[in-house]
Design a protein around this nucleic acid. Structure first.
Lengths: 116, 116
DNA sequence: CCGCATCCCAGGCGATACTG
DNA sequence: CAGTATCGCCTGGGATGCGG
């Protein structure tokens, strides 16, 4: 049993999935592992995400302390950058593992023999 | 752009999350990395999952070729075991990374300084 | 450029009860 | 023991439009 922020998780795996689970969080995070990114850069690199969802997910990631939002201009056009916090950076090995497995799986999928 | 089973994913990360995303899949899988498990063993080790959900998730994992279901008796009481397929075993490093990060995060969470 | 507001929906997930 | 059946909530996420 693990506990963070007064929330309980039956195991450490479910705790991690609370941070990187969902359809988009890990995708956003992996784009931020390489560089800080602006909002529109993220949109272009993740073409199938909607603005609303990107906005909401970034907020949640920020609230979770994984992502840091920096505003560089006070008047429009705004310049905002998103980057990983030091806490967020601890996730990089996990995100790399996830990304790597996806690549291998897509390569190998047709040849794989599904057996015990 | 990645493609598996006629489904498209914007990046390899989202492909992986299709397999291990959701609230429970990774939790079930990590319990199977150590040993084959029976249905009720999994229920006991994941106390907060419902029977229905466990059943549905196991079916999906089986359909995805990650988990293998073996029936050992033809008459009740049934004996059924779930284990990872060879394809599912390729996920072990990913699952270990996820589990490990969750442990570290829960330990460190209160001391973490959230900064860029 | 960077969002928020509103509306809406599928399907993920839970609770409970029942079966071979 | 190992599941199904039924019901219903609730939230993640899509579509569209507006605002600083």
């Amino acid at each position: 049993m693990y506990c963070v922020d007064n929330k309980h998780f039956p195991c450490s795996t479910s705790l991690t999935m609370k941070y990187i689970g969902g359809k988009w969080k890990s995708v956003i995070l992996i784009h931020l592992t390489k560089d800080k990114k602006r909002y529109n850069e993220l949109r272009k690199e993740i073409p199938t995400i909607t603005e609303r969802t990107l906005s909401l997910q970034l907020k949640e990631l920020e609230a979770d302390g994984l992502v840091c939002r920096k505003v560089y201009t006070s008047k429009p056009p705004l310049k905002v950058e998103y980057g990983l916090t030091s806490f967020g950076q601890t996730l990089i090995p996990v995100l790399d593992a996830i990304s790597h497995w996806g690549k291998e799986a897509s390569k190998a999928h047709k040849k794989i023999k599904i057996e015990p």
